[in-house]
Design a protein around this nucleic acid. Structure first.
Length: 981
DNA sequence: GAGCACTGC
């Protein structure tokens, strides 16, 4: 209130200032004005006594009575006003010319446009929509929705804006330094509203306008009905506007103001207030991840019982963003917190919670309505990670449900690209398309240079040539090279090093490579996490050249990059839906990713991107890369959904749906594992078909769904309690879940010294693998025994980096296994408390009997991954020697040379995966006894009639007749039946 | 006898 009063008639008060310098050109008036004493007296009284409208009337007379007669008090006052106005005009002209000198370029100016209106009560979100519609030529009903008084108000504002330029010089003061004052302004207005929380004419007025807009938009009515307070209440519940103050440091405040997203605060918040779901598009560098949660916080979305949740696709991002936002807001980590798979600092005081997408998915399992949250932000939705997609699908249902229950929740989907049609144009997902708000990024122009011809063979050679050329010919600035794999990165680095050996003091040809190995990358990521280093600047006289794979596209930002060399290719994992075989292939990248790569050159200054392919080839690239969910098996996702009682997964509102085959395959696998009820096999074909895709979950499936691992491994955990095998099963499952536990020692060495070291380490690892594989019975557990041995030994030694380094184990993987073991142990105890599982760091190797039992448990989980050695008589080709037959492939598969069973060649094996390289290789093997198959995998077997020989016999102990039957191992459908034995 | 980009619960 105090501020309001202070503002009242403030212009009038300003007039009493007697210190205005005289205008030399207007002599007649000057004389009068120099009589300061009298004037002062006159003014003092007038300012307080004279009514404003009277002065206005006299305004006209001033011009006519302008000559020599002594002026009346009123005239003098008028004159002074004119003078002041002129004076201000002159000042303004001066300021304008000065401003013009420091005028921002058009592009940057656009970013600032809306800041000048912050907190003025202007509805920017509506205005924006309007102008967009006009641009599209759509002058339909939506425009007329801003009708009557509201439209008038808008016109008036537009007019006023022009008038202001001519008349209201005082406005200039605020606009000239609006950037600094902007936040103050916001505070002021919102404080005003806050202080009138109970009944304030100002607030009511504002809401009435809003109610009006909503109403007219929806049913085409106008003012008359709008004044009906009940209706307004129905449409827009009258809630007090909230502003939660945040105590930011001046430095933070200053840095924030430079972020483009800040200019859109009001647009975003208005959209959020008026829509349950909002999509925000803003490229990296727009500041959306750090600022949008703060907008929501300041608007009171964390003031009640609910909190604000933000999901990230990567753990590092969740942790570092929570720290950064806490720092920006000057709040402790108990309030701005994070939660990732194994750790978190969430407390009962948490108001803003950053988490990985999987964490939120797990939370939905516990509380479908997510009642703790008042708003959820899905960040990096453009990456289309499977969990992000599932989350958006789920939230599209949760949000309306929450609204229906009177506990409204907001959903914000944030994407770095404009490809949001999968979210907005998908009526299955959102019946009314959510509004899309575009935020510009702070980005310098990047000049794109296409090759005239596209090298198809030796593109790495072309990359080398181009990199050398840039280094020799072009001004300073870092080079970032995109290649597809580790081998290419190594090879290019070697060639560059050879071409430009680093010499101290060499100013022309020094190339300093920083990230030429995966370890360097890892070190860098670690450093990034700790916020200690970024990249260390290159020594003087050298140029930074970073050779990287895709990681540099999204996961890390390297400062000082001016040139990007893009080979246009990417290595992707492919997965054969029918056979389940994985492979890695190099393919063309997408236009979106090529642009993302180019963007890396314009972070700190204008840059150049050299695309080593023609513009025609670029035109042939797909616009975006496909969503992950369409390229991988989905049994884990289907199980999670079934656990949420979504039986008909085909009907789930996926932003992009997985293929029908993938869904059927997932459901069949889950039925085989006993996680889903078997569908009826008889009845009408249509009904059978439908039932196959809507099998309900079983109690075993519920238990499996609570284990955060793939369903095959979850099944092993569910069976693990027999024979005290659980600790071993947990360790094996943890090791199988974490990829690549052994270090890649086959990489080419950079120097002779490194080469001999690598040879030494390789020998040591081979020796250790042999040791961990054990002897006799344990050997048959195969690669899983090696994993178990490695985990046991590493844990026994305290899981130190030194032990890992010495024994060829990836330290990061071992730490992950250690944490996963802990998590799985807890999960198992939660389902089955009587087992009392615990993690024993001094785990003894399993007994012979336990190994036997473990092999059976593994078979039960990997039943569909059974392979039988090709019989001698079936070897049609010499290449088939040592081959194995699987149910789904005609061609044989082979045991990978790194496997512990490579030389053993058991009759039956189960495998973790088949990877196609030079051959089809099975990895992660374990040997299986033939007689276990019909016993443990009856669901895959078809039994023949009793055999006559050996003849049936009476089992005296059980009193039953026993017999031999032939059995056929088959998988899934009869069409795929394959006789295994 | 090998040759794998990146992630999340």
């Amino acid at each position: 209130m105090g501020k309001l009063r202070k503002k009242h008639n403030w212009k009038g008060r300003q007039q009493s200032d007697p210190q205005q310098p005289a205008d030399q050109e207007k002599t007649d008036v000057v004389v009068e004005l120099q009589d300061g004493g009298r004037l002062k007296g006159v003014d003092e009284s007038n300012a307080l006594v004279l009514p404003a409208n009277k002065t206005k009337k006299k305004k006209v007379s001033v011009t006519s009575v302008s000559t020599k007669r002594p002026l009346t008090k009123k005239q003098r006052k008028e004159l002074q006003k004119v003078l002041e106005r002129k004076e201000k005009k002159a000042q303004r002209a001066d300021i304008l010319t000065k401003l013009a000198e420091v005028q921002l370029p058009e592009s940057e100016l656009k970013l600032l446009y809306t800041t000048s209106k912050l907190g003025t009560g202007d509805k920017l979100y509506q205005t924006k929509m309007l102008s967009d519609e006009i641009k599209d030529g759509d002058t339909g009903p939506k425009i007329s929705s801003v009708s009557g008084a509201n439209r008038k108000r808008k016109w008036k504002e537009d007019e006023e804006e022009e008038e202001q330029k001519a008349e209201e010089s005082s406005d200039l003061d605020t606009s000239s330094d609006e950037e600094e004052e902007k936040d103050e302004e916001t505070n002021e207005t919102t404080e005003m509203i806050e202080s009138k929380e109970t009944i304030s004419p100002c607030l009511e007025d504002k809401q009435e306008v809003k109610g009006e807009q909503n109403k007219t938009e929806q049913d085409g009515q106008n003012e008359k009905k709008i004044s009906d307070p009940e209706k307004i209440q129905n449409k827009t519940p009258s809630e007090p506007a909230v502003f939660v103050p945040v105590d930011r440091s001046p430095e933070i405040q200053e840095a924030r103001l430079k972020l483009p997203v800040l200019a859109e605060e009001q647009v975003i918040m208005e959209a959020v207030r008026e829509n349950p779901c909002v999509v925000i598009c803003g490229e990296t560098g727009s500041g959306k991840t750090t600022q949008v949660p703060q907008f929501l916080y300041e608007a009171g979305y964390a003031s009640g019982s609910g909190i604000i949740g933000i999901t990230e696709p990567r753990r590092v991002a969740a942790v570092s963003m929570s720290h950064r936002v806490a720092k920006e807001m000057n709040l402790p980590t108990q309030v701005v917190s994070y939660q990732i798979r194994y750790e978190g600092n969430v407390t009962s005081d948490t108001k803003i919670k950053f988490m990985t997408d999987g964490v939120l998915l797990k939370e939905i399992q516990k509380d479908f309505l997510l009642q703790r949250y008042s708003a959820i932000i899905i960040d990096e939705a453009h990456e289309r990670s499977v969990y992000t997609d599932i989350l958006i699908g789920l939230l599209s249902r949760i949000v309306p449900l929450r609204n229906k229950k009177g506990m409204p929740m907001k959903l914000l989907v944030m994407s770095a690209t404009l490809r949001v049609e999968d979210f907005t144009d998908n009526t299955k997902l959102f019946r009314t398309p959510p509004p899309v708000i575009k935020v510009d990024a702070r980005q310098f122009p990047v000049t794109i240079h296409f090759n005239k011809r596209t090298p198809l063979e030796d593109y790495t050679g072309e990359v080398f040539q181009k990199t050398c050329k840039i280094h020799r010919m072009l001004p300073p600035g870092g080079i970032l090279v995109f290649l597809t794999g580790q081998a290419e990165v190594h090879s290019l680095c070697r060639r560059l090093r050879k071409a430009f050996p680093f010499r101290k003091g060499n100013t022309t040809t020094g190339v300093d490579e920083e990230a030429d190995t995966s370890e360097a990358m890892r070190k860098f990521k670690k450093a990034k996490q700790k916020k200690t280093v970024v990249f260390r600047p290159p020594p003087p006289g050298t140029r930074l050249c970073v050779v990287a794979t895709n990681v540099a596209e999204t996961s890390l930002t390297i400062p000082g990059i001016k040139y990007v060399v893009d080979c246009g290719r990417v290595k992707k994992r492919f997965y054969d839906r029918v056979t389940g075989v994985s492979s890695f292939k190099v393919t063309w990248t997408s236009q979106a990713s090529a642009n993302q790569r180019a963007g890396r050159a314009g972070r700190t200054e204008p840059g150049h991107c050299y695309r080593l392919y023609s513009s025609a080839v670029f035109g042939d690239f797909s616009l975006f890369s496909e969503a992950e969910i369409t390229r991988r098996p989905v049994e884990d996702l289907v199980l999670q959904m079934k656990d949420l009682n979504i039986d008909k997964v085909v009907n789930f509102p996926f932003p992009t749906s997985p293929s029908a085959e993938a869904l059927v395959a997932a459901e069949q696998l889950l039925v085989s594992l006993g996680a889903l009820k078997e569908p009826p096999r008889t009845g009408r074909v249509k009904d059978i078909e439908r039932a196959r895709l809507s099998c309900p979950i079983t109690p075993l499936g519920r238990a499996m769904a609570s284990f955060p691992v793939a369903p095959r491994y979850a099944k092993m955990l569910a069976l693990g309690k027999q024979q005290d095998c659980l600790p071993y099963v947990i360790a094996v499952v943890a090791a199988m879940t974490v990829r690549e536990i052994f270090e890649d020692l086959d990489r080419p060495a950079g120097s002779e010294d490194e080469s001999s070291k690598l040879t030494q380490r390789r020998a040591r690892l081979t020796q250790m693998r042999r040791l961990w594989a054990g002897q006799g019975a344990s050997l048959l557990l195969g690669d899983l025994m090696v994993m178990l041995g490695a985990v046991g030994a590493c844990e026994f030694a305290g899981c130190t980096p030194k032990f890992c380094e010495e024994n060829g184990l990836r330290y990061k993987a071992m730490v992950e296994i250690r944490r996963l073991r802990g998590q799985l142990t807890n999960a198992v105890n939660a389902v089955c408390p009587e087992v009392g599982a615990f993690v024993n760091p001094k785990m003894t190797p399993p007994t012979e009997h336990q190994v036997f039992c473990l092999r059976q448990i593994v078979l039960a989980g990997l039943g569909d991954h059974l392979a039988r050695r090709v019989q001698a008589e079936d070897i049609l080709d010499p290449k088939w020697k040592n081959g194995y037959k699987t149910p789904l492939m005609d061609e044989p598969v082979f045991i990978h040379p790194s496997s512990a069973l490579f030389k053993t060649l058991p009759e039956f094996v189960v495998y973790q995966e088949i990877m196609e390289t030079t051959k089809m290789y099975m990895k992660g093997l374990s040997a299986v006894e033939a007689e276990w198959v019909p016993q443990l995998l009856p669901q895959y077997c078809h039994f023949g009639s009793p055999l006559e020989s050996p003849s049936p016999w009476l089992c005296s102990s059980t009193g039953t007749v026993r017999c031999h039957r032939s059995s056929t191992f088959c998988k899934f459908s009869k069409a795929n039946t394959v006789t295994m034995f």
